[in-house]
């Protein structure tokens, strides 16, 4: 029997491989979500990318604190949101006190090694300011790339971009990207509304976006066992301000009443309602008007 030439065997093997590849390839699409994904990172890391996304979000916070940050071994006091993330929310003394307590994790050194080691560490609690907030942006961008469904990343980045760095256009683009990846997110819509009102002074667009956000909140949270009232209150109160400025006082009152239901400061909102009512009341019906 004649021995086959190596070239013939090679050609045969190549033909077999090609045939198998073309036959199997259509079937692989059904095997996993990962295979379908056009995103390289999703394909490489699968759901593990969320872990990296969380890490990079935390890295942004570390950067915001210029390296002073508790490790997993430090006793962390429960603090809620980080200062970087809560920068976009309205502050109160309680929030800031909680953050200070959380960041006072170092305490007195337990031994001489720890005491000496602190000379090589960053031991002062600081926040970036005066334009240096830009340093957190790459980490937030990376976090968004890895986990486009993480809402925080878009809202936090957008806040710092427009509020502190003057990059309104970039903030809007980023929020729009977040909206495309998370079409039902009322948080992103709320932040977009803030951008239109506070940075672009476009109350009309802000109002439309916030109405949409409120609708989204109602669709998602009202049916939920534990709805998040804070966001609704935020949307309602801000929308109420816009309505008040536009002269739609009834609507403003309605929204403030909605926000008051779950607000931690109902008295403050009631005061605003009363002021609007006073504004909307006709002058002739004012009490104690002299009868001529």
């Amino acid at each position: 029997m004649r021995r086959a030439s190596p070239h013939v065997i090679l050609a045969l093997l190549l033909a077999v491989c090609f045939t198998l590849a073309t036959t199997i390839q259509p079937r692989t699409r059904a095997w996993s979500e990962r295979a379908k994904s056009g995103n390289v990172l999703k394909m490489l890391l699968g759901d593990g990318r969320r872990m990296f996304a969380n890490h990079f979000f935390e890295q942004a916070d570390i950067s915001f604190h210029s390296g002073y940050y508790p490790s997993i071994f430090d006793q962390r006091a429960p603090a809620g949101k980080s200062a970087m993330a809560s920068g976009k929310d309205e502050h109160d003394e309680h929030d800031e006190a909680a953050h200070e307590k959380a960041m006072a994790f170092l305490g007195q050194p337990r031994d001489w090694i720890e005491a000496f080691g602190r000379h090589f560490r960053i031991t002062e609690h600081t926040h970036l300011a005066h334009g240096q907030e830009r340093e957190i942006l790459p980490w937030l961008r990376l976090s968004a790339e890895l986990d486009p469904q993480r809402i925080d990343t878009y809202t936090v980045a957008a806040y710092w971009l427009r509020e502190k760095l003057g990059k309104v256009k970039e903030a809007e683009e980023f929020l729009r990207e977040g909206q495309r990846n998370n079409p039902n997110s009322y948080e992103i819509l709320f932040e977009l509304g803030r951008l239109y009102r506070e940075s672009l002074k476009d109350n009309v667009r802000a109002r439309h976006v916030w109405e949409f956000a409120l609708r989204k909140w109602n669709e998602q949270e009202s049916a939920s066992a534990k709805p998040d009232p804070f966001q609704r209150e935020q949307i309602a109160v801000n929308l109420a301000r816009v309505e008040e400025e536009a002269g739609r006082l009834e609507r403003a009152i309605e929204l403030l009443e909605l926000g008051k239901k779950t607000s931690p400061n109902p008295a403050g909102l009631q005061k605003q309602i009363d002021e609007i009512r006073l504004k909307s009341a006709p002058p002739s019906t004012a009490p104690n008007a002299p009868a001529y």
């Binding site: 210029s66 502050h91 002062e124």
Partner: peptide
């Protein structure tokens, strides 16, 4: 490098408001 006049550091606390 950072502009020495605007290092961008504030010691502790969040940036909002004069009280803060």
């Amino acid at each position: 490098r950072s502009d020495p006049a605007a290092t961008g550091l504030t010691s502790s606390a969040a940036p909002a408001g004069p009280a803060a």
